[in-house]
Simulated assay, not measured.
Amino acid sequence: MSKKEFILDQLAVCRNTDSWFKPLSKAIEGLTKEQASWKPNENSHTIAQIASHLLFYNERWFQRFGGEMTDDYPETNASTFKGLIDSSEGSWRELAADLDQSLEKWQQAIKQTSEEKLHSSIPGFPEEAVWWEVLSNLCTHNAYHIGQIIYIRKMQESWTIAEDWY
Rank of each mutant, 00 (worst) to 15 (best):
M1R: 11
K3Y: 07
K3C: 13
K4T: 08
E5A: 09
E5V: 06
F6Y: 15
I7K: 00
I7W: 00
L8F: 13
L8N: 02
L8I: 12
D9L: 09
L11C: 12
A12Q: 15
V13A: 11
C14A: 08
C14K: 00
R15C: 04
N16L: 15
N16D: 13
W20A: 09
F21D: 01
S25N: 02
K26G: 07
I28Y: 00
E29I: 03
L31M: 14
Q35P: 03
A36I: 03
K39Q: 05
P40V: 05
N41A: 08
N43A: 12
S44T: 03
H45D: 14
I47S: 00
I47V: 10
I47D: 00
A48H: 01
S52T: 00
S52D: 03
H53G: 02
H53K: 12
L55N: 07
L55S: 04
L55A: 02
L55C: 14
N58Y: 03
N58I: 05
E59Q: 15
R60V: 04
R60E: 07
W61N: 14
Q63R: 02
Q63T: 09
G66T: 09
G67H: 13
E68M: 13
T70W: 12
T70I: 06
P74F: 04
E75M: 10
E75G: 06
T76Q: 14
N77A: 03
N77K: 08
N77T: 13
S87C: 04
E89S: 09
E89R: 11
E89C: 09
G90I: 10
G90V: 07
G90L: 06
S91C: 02
S91D: 12
S91N: 12
W92D: 01
R93A: 14
E94I: 15
E94K: 09
E94G: 05
D98E: 12
L99W: 05
D100L: 13
D100I: 06
D100H: 07
D100Q: 06
Q101D: 05
S102Q: 05
L103P: 00
K105F: 08
Q108F: 14
A109S: 13
I110A: 00
I110K: 00
K111D: 13
Q112H: 05
Q112E: 06
T113L: 13
S114N: 10
K117F: 05
L118Q: 07
S120R: 15
F125Y: 13
E127W: 10
E127S: 07
A129L: 08
V130M: 10
V130I: 05
W132R: 01
E133F: 15
S136W: 14
L138V: 08
T140A: 06
I146W: 04
I146A: 03
I146G: 00
G147I: 06
G147P: 02
Q148K: 12
I149C: 03
R153S: 15
R153H: 14
M155E: 08
S158F: 09
S158I: 15
W159Q: 11
T160R: 09
A162T: 06
A162C: 08
D164K: 14
